[in-house]
Simulated scan of single mutants.
Amino acid sequence: MKLTDYDIIIRPVITEKSMSIMSEGKYTFVVHKKANKIQIRNAVENVFGVKVSRVFTMNYCGKKKRVRFNLGKRSDFKKAIVQLTSDSAGIEFFNSMNSME
C-alpha cells in the first residue's frame, strides 16, 4: 500500500503543551501508524513547504474503557513531533492558532 503525503499526516495535535513548544519550532501531528520518520519528514516538507531538521515519534496504545456493561478500547495511534530548521518559516495553520489566543 502506497501512502500519500496526505495519508501520512492525519491531524495536528492542539494542546497546551504542543502550543508551548511551538516557540522552539516544534509542531505535533497524529500520523499514520506504519509511517516511518523519513516518510513523515517528506510529507511535512511537501504539504507545508518548510524544512524539517528532526522528527520524534511515539506510539500510543489505546486505553480500555467501560461504559456500564460494555467494554471497549480506544484506537492505537502514532504521534510525531517535527522540529523545523532555524531558518525555516513556521507552519501557517499553527501560526493562525497562536494569534487566536
Rank of each mutant, 00 (worst) to 15 (best):
K79Q: 14
K73G: 08
K65P: 10
V47Q: 04
I91G: 04
K34M: 09
S53P: 00
G25T: 11
K65F: 10
N36M: 04
L84D: 09
D7Y: 00
K51I: 08
N46Y: 03
V52Y: 04
T57L: 09
D76G: 11
V13G: 01
S53M: 06
V82Q: 02
N70C: 01
D7H: 07
G90L: 03
G90K: 11
I91Q: 02
T57S: 10
R11H: 03
R41T: 11
F93G: 12
N70E: 07
S23F: 00
S20I: 12
F48T: 08
K2R: 14
I21Y: 11
N98V: 13
K34N: 12
S88Q: 09
N42Q: 15
S96K: 14
R66H: 05
F29W: 06
I9V: 14
N42K: 15
S99R: 07
G25L: 10
R66Q: 14
S86T: 13
K51P: 01
G62H: 05
Y6G: 07
K63R: 15
H32N: 14
G62N: 06
E24D: 14
K34P: 00
R74K: 15
M58H: 12
M97C: 05
L71P: 00
R11S: 10
N98R: 12
E16F: 02
R68Y: 14
F48E: 05
D7N: 11
I81F: 01
N46W: 03
E101W: 01
R41F: 03
I21L: 15
D5I: 01
N98M: 08
I9K: 02
D87N: 13
S20P: 03
K64M: 10
